[in-house]
């Protein structure tokens, strides 16, 4: 039985493992943390249907059967390529002989502290989209640091994305819809609050996304201001003053808000950099893995026998990540049949 090693047990890694196993291959997953599921473990609800992240995680996990070998809390230490297979040394002492490798090392969340002018980690009432998901997941209420319900909330798009200074010129794809989803959730929790989204472009590319944007305005009264946040200042009472240009009116604008939510983007993971060295893979300027062909072979890496899937080849929605994982399984099986 031919063997496939999957590096990274997030959404892409889990889905590909299940599909490969169904195709009759022996599969092992290596995951650095103590559980499968990756970033999905820390998310509350998903766009566009507001389904629970934990339901999807449960669905993915329920498919991972006994036959798939899991190496949790494990790192890949060494890889030697022989003619037709790879010999892989793992940190748990296992030495594996594998016929193909799927790399699904995902993404890291942009560290908002790098955008100093927004005050994350300095001003207490500035949090990130990931922090807010955690609050919702823990069934906590969104509160100011003084314990009151925020009356006015500013949501800041493109934090760490589309920003040469932050080192990431690309669009992270999912944060526009996440912003609108979270804005609606905030309004549902705090109907009397005012929510403002500061955006440069609203990239509502997915099916139903545009409808959600319309609902945000019409049903929830969420307000959109076209203009990138230039800077934020903390007032003595802990509220935060935001400065931007209202570019549709051509006027500078300032606003005090009780809470700021930064829509942090997706960046290439630290793991991606590590694995790239071990496997001699190529990455592009954006830090994500190169692929053989954008349109036709999006899950083939630059090295024969090594495949890539999910957000390690660029920001993706979960829907696209799952499809990518399935595509990778097909591409791997084609390779193994040769």
């Amino acid at each position: 039985m031919k063997h496939v090693l999957v590096i990274g047990g997030g959404v892409a890694g889990m889905e590909a493992s299940v599909r490969l196993s169904q195709m009759g291959y022996a599969v092992s997953i290596v995951e650095q943390s103590d559980k499968l599921g990756g970033k999905l473990n820390r998310w509350h609800s998903l766009s566009p249907d507001n389904s629970n992240a934990s339901d999807l995680l449960g669905k993915l996990k329920s498919q991972i059967h006994q036959g798939i070998h899991k190496h949790l809390n494990t790192e890949v230490l060494s890889v030697i390529k022989n003619k037709l297979h790879f010999v892989v040394g793992l940190s748990d002492g296992t030495d594996l002989k594998t016929d193909a490798i799927l790399v699904s090392t995902g993404f890291d969340v942009f560290d908002a502290q790098k955008k100093e002018e927004y005050g994350y980690g300095i001003y207490d009432n500035v949090i990130t989209s990931a922090d807010l998901e955690q609050i919702f997941r823990d069934e906590d209420e969104l509160k100011t640091t003084s314990g009151t319900a925020p009356k006015r909330i500013g949501i800041i798009h493109c934090v760490g994305s589309r920003d040469e200074k932050a080192g990431h010129t690309y669009c992270s794809q999912v944060c526009c819809i996440t912003a609108v989803k979270q804005a609606i959730e905030i309004k549902e929790h705090l109907p009397d609050s005012e929510v403002f989204c500061f955006y440069m472009d609203l990239r509502m590319f997915g099916r139903k996304f545009e409808d959600i944007y319309r609902d945000a305005q019409v049903k929830h009264g969420i307000q959109f201001i076209r203009g990138r946040l230039s800077e934020a200042f903390e007032n003595p009472d802990g509220s935060v003053m935001l400065k931007a240009e209202d570019t549709l009116l051509g006027k500078p604008l300032k606003m005090n808000v009780d809470k700021v939510i930064l829509m942090v983007g997706m960046i290439a993971s630290a793991k991606t950099k590590k694995i790239k060295e071990l496997l001699n893979l190529q990455i592009e300027d954006d830090g994500f893995y190169s692929i053989a062909d954008t349109h036709y072979e999006s899950t083939k890496s630059s090295v024969p026998g090594i495949f890539v899937a999910g957000a390690c080849t660029g920001p993706k929605t979960i829907e696209n990540t799952i499809n990518d994982a399935r595509a990778a399984a097909i591409q791997i099986s084609e390779y193994l049949k040769q």
């Binding site: 604008l253 300032k254 606003m255």
Partner: peptide, 16 residues
Amino acid sequence: KDFGYTISCDRQIDFD
């Protein structure tokens, strides 16, 4: 009175 200067209006949108 014409004091020889004018005061520019504040163009800023101040939400508060």
